[in-house]
């Protein structure tokens, strides 16, 4: 604010009424905090302070701001500067509530709950009434995981927030017991599976590990750091697939060579997901690099062919 603006004439009642709203807008306010706004010039709280406070409370009430006082604490029940949501939008809010119910305790859960509490405080009357009738029961079918692995999921979420490297031991369906040093990325909640997404610092791969296959995790006293350079997978496509293929956000095309193969560069996709995807493209897709992925694909083909011997 410039000096000129500060020197302009202002109205103290206007400043006070908004200072009062500002205090209440946090949701709750202690009486001791509120009455200070109306203290005498020397800072003392007198009978006059209480009278003035009452006048300002009346003003807010007439304007439409509802506040309840219980045991020296004020509770804001409604704000005048409201948000109006329709039935569809309230349904979206109910989805948030359902998602919160499956989130383990942690920052995300706390922040999502805080967001909802603040949002609901801003509802206008119509939205409040509508929110009572909009179906808010929506269950995601993750009960199996939450009965058995609740604490494990919670641990994984905490590790994502800690910003440290971890040593993780898990059972891979193809390669057996694996022990890796990695950086936690996120916990992924799918229709019927919860997985721990980590970045393997040695192989530079992003891996989704089903939580039920984790044997143990040790947090290391090493900062995770911010840089994450993922292994680049290069594969080739041919035939109609070239026209049909839709590049993912994490892919780029290197064009078509003289033999009609289109080269795709992929970085950051979970290798299990990618392998399954590329396998579906049959002979119209060949992995070029890295070598271990080529070998993995070749082994998968051999193993599948064995089913038919």
């Amino acid at each position: 604010m410039s000096n000129r603006k500060i020197s302009e004439k202002y109205n103290d009642s206007c400043i006070k009424i908004f200072a009062l709203i500002s205090l209440f807008s946090k949701g709750t306010a202690d009486f001791s905090e509120v009455i200070k706004l109306f203290a005498d010039d020397d800072g003392t709280i007198s009978q006059k302070s209480n009278v003035i406070l009452n006048k300002y409370m009346n003003t807010l009430e007439i304007f439409g701001i509802k506040i309840r006082k219980t045991k020296n604490k004020y509770y804001l029940l409604s704000m005048p500067f409201t948000i109006s949501l329709n039935e569809e939008e309230l349904y979206a809010v109910s989805l948030i509530k359902s998602a919160i119910s499956i989130l383990p305790d942690g920052k995300n859960k706390t922040n999502a709950i805080k967001f909802l509490a603040e949002l609901e405080k801003k509802y206008d009357n119509d939205t409040k009434n509508l929110s009572k009738v909009v179906n808010s029961t929506r269950n995601f079918d993750l009960s199996f995981y939450f009965q058995k692995f609740k604490s494990q999921i919670k641990d994984c979420e905490s590790l994502c927030e800690a910003g440290k490297k971890i040593e993780l031991c898990y059972n891979d369906t193809e390669c057996g017991i694996q022990n890796i040093i990695c950086i936690p990325q996120e916990v992924k909640y799918r229709e019927n599976l919860v997985s721990f997404c980590v970045y393997n610092t040695l192989s530079r791969q992003v891996i989704d590990i089903p939580v039920d296959s984790i044997r143990y995790i040790h947090q290391l006293n090493i900062d995770a750091g911010k840089s994450k350079i993922c292994t680049t997978v290069i594969f080739k496509l041919k035939g109609d697939l070239i026209k049909r293929y839709n590049l993912r956000d994490w892919e780029r095309s290197e064009g078509i060579d003289e033999n009609g193969w289109m080269t795709i560069v992929n970085s950051g996709e979970d290798l299990n997901t990618l392998t399954t995807r590329l396998f579906k493209y049959d002979e119209n897709c060949v992995v070029v690099s890295p070598k271990y992925l080529k070998v993995r694909l070749q082994k998968m083909i051999d193993k599948t062919l064995k089913n038919y011997e």
């Binding site: 989805l95 989130l103 920052k107 922040n111 999502a112 805080k114 929506r138 079918d141 993750l142 909640y189």
Partner: peptide
């Protein structure tokens, strides 16, 4: 922080609904 939580919820919702 709330945006991060809302995005996390986006990922949960997109995989479950």
């Amino acid at each position: 922080e709330q945006i991060k939580a809302l995005l996390k919820i986006y990922r949960i919702i997109s995989a479950n609904v």
